[in-house]
Amino acid sequence: MAKGIWVVVEQRDLQIRKVSLELLSQGRKIADETGESLVAVILGQGIEGLAQTVSANGADKVILVEDEKLAEYTTGAYTSVLNKLIRKEEPQVVLTGNTAVGKDLFPRLAQRLGVGLASDCTGIEVDSSSFMVFKRPIYAGKAFEFVSSTVRPILATIRPNTFALGTPDAGRTAEVVKETADIDAGDLRAILKEVAIAASKRPELTEANIIVSGGRGMKGPENYVILEALADVIGAAVGASRAAVDAGWKEQKFQVGQTGKTVSPTLYIACGISGAIQHLAGMGSSKFIVAINKDPEANIFNVADYGIVGDLFDVVPILTEEFKKIVG
């Protein structure tokens, strides 16, 4: 009889990723609802101190696996350890964030376990017959599928920001179990040589979840710093309209539109862009569109979900401050 809801907690340099806390928070709710226990699993080196954080965020039990070979994430070592743990403990469900680690680790783990994986999920429904049904966007969010499995455990990676963070309860305590890492030699064939963390690397336009874009209303290349400041707060890419590219304020590779790059981010913030048809056609499939423009007649307002008629030089700095508060 499978038992427990597991969250594989992701840490880097002993900092727990926000998405892991989101999952603990949501996991807690589901655990309470179903009577299951919520188990946090942390792999790494020197991670003992993290047990308190995860228990404060809702874990009933914390499994710590300490090993120098786990100090940095590697596919093989992590798979090796988790495979054995899961086979031993037989949880119902194993969740983790749909991060670079989650995306790399869980497919291999699922295959080794011979189970299914619901990847990049944006919702979990508790279901009496299959325990959990996972909602996942397909076709770049143009549809959703709901998947479930009767084979245990079910693995799932959950998209960051899907669930809200809970309020940590410092008074909570959880059972802490330390497991030794038993890593198969065959799992160490890929050697991590170097990790380079970019100080602030903006995502590539067509890969970005959020794009902040500026047009003719930017008035000059020097003003892009205010968009960049906004973008860096929310991890957005910075784009430009053709007019801004023509004016020489931005390189052509930043041009959004049918004649530049066609994008469909979750959020597109258009600042000082009037909205020529080629531009609109190149970003119209964005999930949410925000337009900030002085001209109330600007075409961009026809496609915007939220529009502010106003001077971007007034609006954007305040917006940046507000976003800082939200993102933390």
């Binding site: 049918q258 056609a281 190149g282 119209g284």
Partner: peptide, 19 residues
Amino acid sequence: ANLRPIAGSLHANGNPWSG
């Protein structure tokens, strides 16, 4: 590459403007 969205839109929407 720059023409694929246009052809794609013509296939899907019957117009080249992603409308």
